[in-house]
Design a protein around this nucleic acid. Sequence first.
DNA 1: GCTCATTTTGACCATTTGGTCAGGTTTTTG
DNA 2: CAAAAACCTGACCAAATGGTCAAAATGAGC
Lengths: 210, 210
Amino acid sequence: MSVEEQPRRTRIQEKNRARILDAALGTFARFGYRGTRVDQIASDAGMSKSNLLYYFGSKSEIYKAVLAGLLDRWLAPLRTLDPDGDPRRELTAYIEQKLRFSANEPEASRLFANEVMQGAPMIRDVLEGPLKALVEEKAEVLRHWASAGKIRDVDPHHLIFLIWATTQHYADFAPQIEALTGSGIHDDRFRKGALETLTTLLFEGLLPRA
Amino acid sequence: MSVEEQPRRTRIQEKNRARILDAALGTFARFGYRGTRVDQIASDAGMSKSNLLYYFGSKSEIYKAVLAGLLDRWLAPLRTLDPDGDPRRELTAYIEQKLRFSANEPEASRLFANEVMQGAPMIRDVLEGPLKALVEEKAEVLRHWASAGKIRDVDPHHLIFLIWATTQHYADFAPQIEALTGSGIHDDRFRKGALETLTTLLFEGLLPRA
DNA sequence: GCTCATTTTGACCATTTGGTCAGGTTTTTG
DNA sequence: CAAAAACCTGACCAAATGGTCAAAATGAGC
């Protein structure tokens, strides 16, 4: 599910597999695994169902391939959090990366959400293994910053969840946000506003400083 | 979609409709509209598919009924935000209500998320109408608090989104949270920890006060 | 207990769905 | 350019799916 060996592929294979995975991401993100119809992926990818099944033997094979390609991109930003950096700088950069991800790959974000909401049947091992390890590592960083007096001493897990939740929200609930504000995270101005408000609240808090 | 007139119902109808809606909430929340099988709702509700269809003529009818019952509960907490109250008290109470909702009705939370992620096809009018109106009203409250110097002057929309996102996250991403922490929002201790961290961050901020 | 309305069932149906396969077409390779 | 490999198609299939219907079983009111 994580590392993928790359068999030799022709140019045609390269192109068609990419088209399929791209189309599949769209429908899986929208309708989940069970709600997605192979036919629709095929037509979105501009090819016949038979041809699609020539490249990926089954629906679940497509799903796994999409997820595998997604996980690394979802995780990447957290890896960049530098223990030796300044907390505010580091966390701001992290939040900005996550917001960018929501803006640039909203479908990936939604598919991830969908998979987790269904109980993470396909990626449970990743969550419990590599992700948990990474989160523990970064939680340690946060605790270290806290004990050095650089940040307030709050539960690192909840802090991480707050960042995940808020940044992901802009992708996952895009239709709601659009309905309420008329704009969305894809818009540069909007994204800057979100980042500004988010970081202000996170670092300074809502109550005016004395 | 919002108000529902109640036709006369026998005791049996009352009981069976409730059983169906309850089962339907579970599967719709997990698999979305398209991914849900009428058969499965029926068997979860402990009755035959035919019998289920005697109560609700079609799959989409069940879905609409479930959503209608859900929206009010989802919205209710925001309504309680009192303009004349103390911002910290009011917002803390709001967050606590939302966390409780995530704890007590995680499936309702997930179904709402699912519907919105699919583009809110069924509740778009509610989002653009009543919800938008309510949000504007409460945004005004926040602006008023800001201009009175009671809270920092941040974008009310993003502030509301932050609260929605963080509180909802505990229901929607429960499997991930469980995998990472071994616990979840249903646990009293955990929920108190979440509330504590959330309110501290939101009101005081992450950076230590001078 | 009798009658009528409500509730439940199981058989049935058309359509959709994931997937197979034999054979045709295109591309690559020697 | 010929042969082999890769690619693509359409017909086909079994199972699943949403939904119908007539008739049987059950319940309520007298």
